[in-house]
C-alpha cells in the first residue's frame, strides 16, 4: 500500500550529462530519478511510455549506445552519466520513418499504440543484433514486452518483413507477405 511505501531519501541533486538521439543534455537529477523520469519528465520526450515502472511491461524500452534494449524504468538516471541513448524519437530520420516503423504501420502491428514505442525499440534491437532474425530471435527479443492488443501476431509479421521497407518506398499498403 502507498501508505507503507518508504519514500527514498531525496539525496543530493547532481548534473547528468546524457546524449539523447544525438543531442547532449545536462540536467539536474536526484538519485531517485530513473532514466525514464529524465526522458519523459526533464527532457519532455513523451514518445517513450511509462507503464508498470517495475520492469514487467516493456513500454519504456530505449536503446543504449550499442543499440541494445534497455528498460528505462528500472535504471537510475545517474548511472547514465556520460552515456548515449536512443529513444523512439531518434529512430526516424528527417521525418522519414525507419523501416521497422513503416513495417508496423503497413502490417497493422499497432493498435492502441501504447506499447508501440517500446515494442518497436525492442524490435529494432533484434534487428540491430541480427538483421535476418530467426523465429527464436524474434520471440526472445520481444519476450519482455506485452502487446495486449495485437497478441504479438502482426508484430512478429512486421519484424520478419521490416527489411522490405528499407530504402524508403515499401510494398503496397496493407500488404501481407507470409
Amino acid at each position: 500500500m502507498d501508505a507503507k511505501r518508504e519514500t527514498p531519501p531525496a539525496g543530493r541533486s547532481r548534473v547528468l550529462r546524457l546524449v539523447v538521439n544525438g543531442d547532449l543534455h545536462e540536467v539536474l537529477v536526484t538519485p531517485r530519478h530513473t532514466l525514464l523520469d529524465v526522458i519523459r519528465g526533464e527532457l519532455g520526450l513523451k514518445g517513450t511510455k511509462e507503464g508498470c515502472t517495475t520492469g514487467s511491461c516493456g513500454v519504456c524500452t530505449v536503446h543504449n549506445d550499442r543499440g541494445e534494449a534497455i528498460l528505462s524504468c528500472l535504471t537510475p538516471a545517474l548511472e547514465w552519466d556520460g552515456e548515449s541513448i536512443t529513444t523512439i524519437e531518434g529512430l526516424e530520420s528527417g521525418g522519414r520513418l525507419a523501416p521497422i516503423q513503416q513495417a508496423f504501420v503497413e502490417h497493422h502491428a499497432v493498435q492502441c499504440g501504447y506499447c508501440t514505442p517500446g515494442v518497436i525499440m525492442s524490435a529494432q534491437a533484434i534487428l540491430n543484433a541480427t538483421p535476418e532474425p530467426a523465429e527464436a530471435d524474434i520471440n526472445d527479443g520481444l519476450a519482455g514486452v506485452i502487446c495486449r492488443c495485437t497478441g504479438h501476431i502482426k508484430v512478429k509479421e512486421a519484424v520478419r518483413n521490416a527489411w522490405r521497407y528499407a530504402g524508403g518506398a515499401g510494398p503496397a499498403p496493407g500488404g501481407s507477405h507470409d
Binding site: E50, L91, Q102, F104, E106, H108
Partner: peptide
Amino acid sequence: GRRQPRLDGFDKVSGRSVFADDIE
C-alpha cells in the same frame, strides 16, 4: 473492403501520439 493501414499509424509508431499521461 480494402486493407487500409491505420491513418494514425505514423503518429503511433513515431511516438507522436499523445496519451493522457503525456499531457503536462
